[in-house]
Amino acid sequence: MTAFEPSELVVTARCGTPLAELEEMLARAGQMFAFEPPHFAAEPPAGATFGGMIAAGLSGPRRAAAGAVRDYLLGARIMNGRGEVLGFGGQVMKNVAGYDVARLAAGSLGTLGIIVEASVKTLPRPSAEVTLALEMPGERALESVNRWIGRGIAVSASAWRGGELAVRLSGAASAVAAAAAALGGERIPEASAAARWAAIRDHRDAFFAGEEPLWRLSLPQLAPSVDLPGEQLIEWAGALRWLRSGADPQAVRTAAARAGGHATLFRGGDKASGVFHPLPAALLEIQRRLKAVFDPDRVFNPGRMYPGI
């Protein structure tokens, strides 16, 4: 960690800084990374790092309410394929000088260069959080959560599976209490609620165990339920749907595209047909040219995302 000024809401750190360490420090200052980055491996040195968090670009349960890693990334120093360290963005909230290369690095999976150091915006932790469990079928759950959000209820996370919807409300204590009373359902004790959201975030929940291929479907939040075999865990008010299914990859991709989104073979399964959703030719060509700007000799993670990138 190279700089943290709580009143600036910005943390600057080198790429190898353990994420757990940064989060602990933020918590002591009453702050957080609002996008709730996942920690897929528990212990250092295998544990999640700050640079990995940005390169992977993954966000946790609060994403639908608070935004993704890229939304909080203010600046990055990137080593390109020629070994030159270049700086983009900065440590300030608003910056429109030049193209927004820093945000481009978020989710680039190390294909453009090494993120040497980055500055990320933090937010104060909400003063109150309550998690409620409600019994309801999937379609009604999505409709309800979206209706609550549309009415200004501060839903900071949602997860539906097998007929049960868990909803987390965050904000001022009085507002959370009023919203919880309006929504009804069963209140989950604080400690077990926190553990539950962390388990979903980090894929330690039982849903993610086992060998069945894990698909990540990113869809418009109110897209009708996709007709595919397998169990689903639905987060982000419907915008993120985890699917355990041995279905034909092409069928999964077609269903996701038809619903207006895309599918990633997140874990397991046959990766022969690619992990990521195929790109239209024009976009693939632009991305190949961008790769060449940063890494003309294709040193960094070649082919990790798409052929030629």
Binding site: A64, P220, A239, G261, L279, I286
Partner: peptide, 27 residues
């Protein structure tokens, strides 16, 4: 694009595959 191709940056979902061209396009 100047080449006359229709492209979509981002999507009606919360993210899209590949590099984040939606972020790059802004500003």
């Amino acid at each position: 694009t100047i080449e006359g191709e229709s492209v979509e940056f981002g999507s009606a979902a919360l993210d899209s595959p590949g590099l984040d061209l939606l972020a790059l396009f802004h500003g």
